[in-house]
């Protein structure tokens, strides 16, 4: 028995063709959610089955694949998906944002700017930005058809009425090419500006909800806001305890029962690269010791 147990990249060719056709239509209508016949994958919903199917449909033997989960290359989800494609497609895997040709991501966009020719594949849990405002698919579909997005502005307005500011911090709705309102997946709103005018192709796959959508390179992506309450990026006011970065998105780590905490880069590869270049910790001796030489 020398026959391989799986087709290249696990999915059968017919499924790949169906996904590929959906991707082409998604690129042609930026921000519109194309329905597709999502397949069962050998991992549970919520683990990135949509992203995995998109990756499987585009991946070739010469690609170099990076997978991140909340910015980290080392979490179970990221490691499992990387191993899955190393096994079923024999592709090279990498943690380097610069070297990767395909990057599958859950909830972050890498800090290192993306370049032309790269493909960023997002794992999306709930692709419909209007779903929590209007549960009926027939209605949300009609709203997209008519570009009737008043409800979304009401939601943002209610945020302001209750909290004095737009309190949405992740999955912050964007408008793509002045037409479709789109859910950027649960990325922190810190990452929203990176979607605008991005040289890489951005593809979004929602497995359970059976939708694929896309943002072509150099597209106009605007975070929804009001003139008197403009969109604001949010970032913890601090620096990374490991590499000292003041520009990266930070994770908060609770240190003990007394409320001591530290911040560190959410993008582990960005942080490691900075440390390798000699950027050190600032006043956290333990963190410095933990850093690899």
């Amino acid at each position: 028995m020398n026959a391989p147990a799986y087709n290249f990249a696990y999915l059968d060719e017919q499924s790949k063709r169906m996904i590929r056709r959906a991707i082409l239509k998604a690129i042609a209508v930026p921000g519109y959610q194309v329905p597709f016949a999502s397949r069962e994958m050998p991992m549970p919903y919520g683990w990135g089955t949509g992203g995995v199917q998109v990756t499987a449909a585009i991946l070739g033997p010469h690609d170099s694949l990076k997978v991140i989960d909340q910015g980290s290359d080392d979490t179970t989800n990221a490691v499992s998906i990387r191993k899955f494609f190393a096994k079923t497609a024999g592709v090279q895997t990498t943690t380097s944002t610069l070297k990767a040709t395909v990057i599958q991501t859950r909830h972050r966009i890498p800090e290192t700017p993306l370049r032309e020719g790269q493909v960023l594949v997002f794992q999306v849990p709930i692709p419909e930005p209007l779903r929590f405002l209007e549960p009926r698919e027939t209605e949300t579909r009609r709203m997209h058809a008519l570009a009737d997005y008043g409800l979304m502005h009401v939601k943002l307005y209610e945020d302001i009425a209750q909290h004095g500011r737009i309190a949405t911090t992740y999955a912050y709705p964007v408008k793509v090419e002045e037409r479709y309102v789109m859910d950027p997946s649960p990325t922190p709103k810190f990452d929203n500006p990176k979607m605008h005018d991005c040289p890489a192709l951005q593809l979004f796959g929602a497995g359970r909800e059976k939708r694929i959508y896309a943002i072509p390179p150099y597209s106009n992506v605007v975070s929804l806001d009001f003139e008197d309450h403009p969109f604001e990026r949010y970032r913890h006011d601090g620096k990374c305890a490991l590499c000292g970065a003041v520009d990266s998105f930070l994770d908060e780590l609770i240190m003990d029962d007394h409320g001591r905490r530290m911040f560190m880069c959410s993008d582990t590869e960005y942080c490691e690269t900075r440390r390798a270049l000699g950027n050190g910790a600032q006043g956290f001796s333990k963190a410095t010791e933990a850093a690899p030489a």
Binding site: N7, E13, G60, P61
Partner: peptide, 19 residues
């Protein structure tokens, strides 16, 4: 090679469609 050739062609078509 139906699988790999289709993949290679698709990436060309996707690249063309995206740009």
């Amino acid at each position: 090679d139906p699988g790999l050739s289709a993949q290679s062609s698709f990436r060309s078509i996707m690249d063309a469609m995206a740009r």
